[in-house]
Nucleic acid binder design. Structure first.
Length: 476
DNA sequence: TGAAATGTTGGGGCG
DNA sequence: ACGCCCCAACATTTC
């Protein structure tokens, strides 16, 4: 009787191009899959609500996919440092397989689990696959990490990821004696009282199948237009793969090769030049994880320490107005409402809304980071932290302090017909394309149509931000 | 992966 | 025809 292999699933909730699963499948014996709802003792931070909703459905999908391969998925709750060795002992496995999660607390967890297993003569076999190039792998000629994105990108782009490996074969044999399983419902990942997930259900299909479908849609629609349409929030110009990638429902290497192949199939040089713009987005993801490895507290601490002395404003009223999409700036409010309704916001609008919070309102980026953490289905420590710091100006290779997005111009430029605003800010549905992005001048109360007037005046807010940022910059 | 302020230029109206 | 002014269009610099 061949021994069982145990695969500890984490942020790699897929069966295709899954190196850990493939490694486990090298033996002919049965495979047991395990997912532990992370009560990671090294991380104080609990997954946000939108992300929990996604996880529920992703696990549901994974369980179905694995079962088709004769692999039962064991769901448990608890501390992985205790649970993994315990299940390994009960199943009498020699090796536990998993994929790295490149976050400091998760790497710490891997070390602890490995030593727990080793104490009983077992092994933890960790694999890559969640990033194109894991932290530390992209360096300059001196072997030093890059501080600026563009040179990082040039090196990154010269080293294509390995070809994806396929799906493993059906086992034909299942492990025996599985007990202690709890149901997906028992993980309590779904919202109740109230159930606010209607918009999420309508928008997303979590899981490997949904990820593949989304990739196919993106490949079909990409025909030379990504560079033009990716900035237009009224279109589906972006890949919308962020949450699928976060949970590892699809591997970035698979996306890389698939997008490249479908572009080359078009034999269109214009398209070929274009595709690097998309691959660049995958590169940002790796760059952000590289940063997180070097600055483990990046989600809380300013990378640029001068910002520790920044005099952020505390203004709960304005913070709530921002969260609820009632700033009076249509493009900002449209984005914040899209986020609330669907658990996602278009990348261009994320930049505008984030710039508005940190620069127009001068509210600490932590507040924005926390709101996004709770409401985004793609919430990710590395990406969320790095991007907020990038906008706030405290990050590595960050936006210069004087780069202040004008929400009116940005709206007119990237939502020229006003369709995006019309969709999410129905109060403005009858405005002309020209007028729709222009806020009503600041004054108390609502306008007759129920839409708030601007909570700050753009020009005055811009001046205030410049002064505050100038002061910080001079403090060395 | 900006925007605003400031500087320069060149064509047309007009005395 | 010529010089002058105006100002849009574009370029540069500054925040």
């Amino acid at each position: 009787m061949t021994k069982t292999a145990l695969v500890w699933f984490r942020r790699d909730l897929r069966t295709t191009d899954q190196p850990a699963l493939s490694a486990a499948a090298k033996a002919t014996g049965p495979i047991l899959a395990l997912y532990i709802l992370d009560d990671n003792p090294f991380s104080k931070r609990k997954r946000g609500a939108a992300s929990r909703w996604w996880l529920h459905h992703s696990l549901e999908s994974l369980r179905t996919d694995l079962m088709a391969l004769d692999i039962p998925l064991l769901l448990l709750r608890g501390d992985a440092t205790a649970v993994v060795p315990e299940i390994a002992a009960k199943s009498n496995v020699d090796t536990v397989y998993c994929s790295h999660v490149h976050e400091p607390s998760e790497r710490q967890l891997e070390i602890e689990v490995a030593s727990g297993l080793a104490a009983a003569g077992r092994k933890l076999s960790c694999h890559e696959g969640g990033l194109i190039h894991p932290p530390g792998n992209v360096t300059n000629k001196e072997g030093q990490p890059y501080r600026v994105f563009t040179p990082y990108w040039k090196t990154w782009y010269n080293v294509p990821p390995p070809r994806p490996i396929g799906k493993i074969a059906r086992r034909g044999v299942r492990p025996v004696g599985i007990s202690k399983n709890i149901s997906l419902q028992d993980l309590s990942l779904l919202p109740k009282h109230p159930d606010w997930s209607v918009g999420l259900r309508r928008t997303w299909q979590p899981g490997e199948l949904g990820a593949e479908a989304q990739l196919t849609r993106f490949n079909k629609g990409i025909g030379g237009s990504y560079e033009c349409t990716r900035d237009l929030p009224a279109t589906t110009g972006t890949s919308r793969l962020s949450a699928h990638l976060h949970f590892g429902e699809i591997s970035p290497a698979r996306v890389w090769h698939s997008v490249k192949a479908s572009t080359e199939a078009n034999k269109n040089s214009e398209v070929l030049g274009d595709i690097s713009k998309f691959l660049r987005q995958l590169c940002w993801r790796d760059f952000n994880h590289d940063l997180l490895a070097r600055y483990p507290n990046m989600e809380r601490r300013n990378i640029d320490a001068r910002f520790d002395k920044f005099s952020w404003r505390t203004d709960d009223k304005q913070l709530i107005a921002w969260q609820q999409g009632r700033t009076g700036y249509p493009i900002v409010d449209a984005g914040m409402r899209e986020l609330w309704a669907t658990g996602w916001m278009h990348n261009r609008v994320r930049m505008i809304a984030a710039s508005f919070l940190t620069k127009h309102l001068l509210i600490n980026w932590h507040a924005g980071e926390e709101w996004f953490w709770d409401t985004l289905v793609d919430a990710d420590i590395a990406n969320n932290g790095a991007n907020w710091q990038w906008i706030a100006g405290s990050g590595m290779d960050a936006a210069p302090y004087f780069r202040i997005f004008n929400p009116i111009l940005q709206g007119q430029r990237f939502d020229p017909a006003g369709d995006y605003v019309r969709k999410w800010v129905p109060e403005r549905a009858n405005y002309s394309a020209k007028q729709i992005h222009i806020p009503s001048p600041p004054k108390e109360g609502l306008f007759a149509d129920g839409y708030p007037s601007a909570i700050v005046d753009h020009k005055a807010a811009r001046q205030r931000a410049l002064e505050a940022y100038r002061a910080t910059k001079s403090k060395n």
